[in-house]
């Protein structure tokens, strides 16, 4: 049985380093090892989205490794130390690393620990973990990144160490320049094998080539909602874990987010958790038509 491990920090400085299988408590909270945490944004929104996918496919729920960190770095160091020290016992097949302080030296050690495993886990990164991987020059050791438009510009700029410091000419929300930025990110060895670039238009690229472009349904009201990029990272993590090829998982993740947005009809005041709550409906009603993912394992067994 394979294992999906989701790693990141949450905005509660008193939350200790905690590892375990996650479950949804109610509309507002997730829980791991008896500790509740808010599922609104960031790492928790990513976890919520991945959990929606594993629940739909009746697969084992993701394991999470989380700690509180509000920017001081203590939680970041705590989760990565735990991961390095325990990776041989945890034996994750897929690891998604998310919100954390982008401490490059620590990320190098994490990836070294992954490479020392009997089987190297499939590595996904977004947010601070992706910044650290790029800044440390080890992006190519990752299997999948999920940058937003600012972040693909950051990956395309060989000198940038943070998305706030990208060259001015790269900062443009024009989707037409994103393929160039994707090409530059691969050229400068700053890209993972697969890139899922999320924005007004989504792009899925692999090994330097754009394979898929997703631009519908167009739901502009998703842009101001914090966490709607995090949900794509969670969706693609769950979809790779249940067996989709990385590029196909990227397409499904983007289409799921967009379609949920269309159903929800959000305003800029909508919260990401409300979007996540529509994912089960999208899975039920659309996945069959999109791909032939038309039955669930125990439904088949009950026939």
């Amino acid at each position: 049985m394979s294992k999906l491990l989701l790693v990141g920090c949450i905005p509660d400085s008193d939350f200790p380093v905690t590892y375990g299988q996650v479950k949804k408590v109610d509309d507002y909270y997730l829980e791991v090892n008896g500790r509740k945490f808010d599922r609104t944004q960031g790492t928790a929104a990513m976890i919520s989205a991945a959990l929606a996918i594993t629940t739909h496919f009746r697969e084992e729920a993701p394991y999470v490794l989380i700690a509180g960190d509000i920017g001081g770095g203590e939680g970041t160091r705590g989760i990565y130390k735990y991961l390095i020290d325990n990776i041989n016992e945890i034996k994750p097949d897929f690891i998604t690393m998310h919100y954390c302080m982008p401490i490059m030296a620590v990320m190098i050690k994490v990836v070294e620990a992954c490479e020392a495993c009997e089987k190297k886990p499939f590595l996904i990164a977004d947010a601070g973990a992706m910044y650290a991987a790029k800044g440390a020059g080890i992006a190519e050791k990752f299997d999948l990144f999920t940058p937003d438009p600012s972040e693909i510009a950051f990956l395309a700029d060989p000198n940038a160490t943070h998305p706030a410091y990208i060259s001015r000419h790269l900062f443009d929300n024009n989707a037409a320049i994103i393929p160039e930025q994707i090409a530059a990110a691969y050229k400068y060895h700053s890209a993972a094998k697969t890139l899922v670039v999320k924005g007004k238009t989504d792009f899925v690229a692999q090994d330097g080539k754009v394979l898929h472009v997703i631009d519908s349904p167009d739901v502009p009201m998703l842009e101001p909602i914090g966490g709607t990029g995090d949900t794509i990272t969670g969706l693609v993590s769950g979809l790779v874990y249940v067996g989709l090829e990385p590029d196909v998982a990227g397409v499904f993740a983007c289409r799921t987010n967009r379609t949920a947005g269309k159903i929800l009809n959000p305003t800029p005041a909508t919260k990401a958790r409300q979007l996540v709550d529509v994912f089960p409906q999208v899975c039920r009603e659309y996945y069959c038509g999109w791909s032939g993912l038309c039955y669930l394992p125990d439904e088949e067994a009950n026939k």
Partner: peptide, 30 residues
Amino acid sequence: GNMKISYEKKSGIIVNISGGGCPDIPYLNA
């Protein structure tokens, strides 16, 4: 840059913060 803040015009209430990847952003959102 990479950060967005949205507010209701009438009340001035901040309704969402998005962008960013560092761990203080979910905290600032909260």
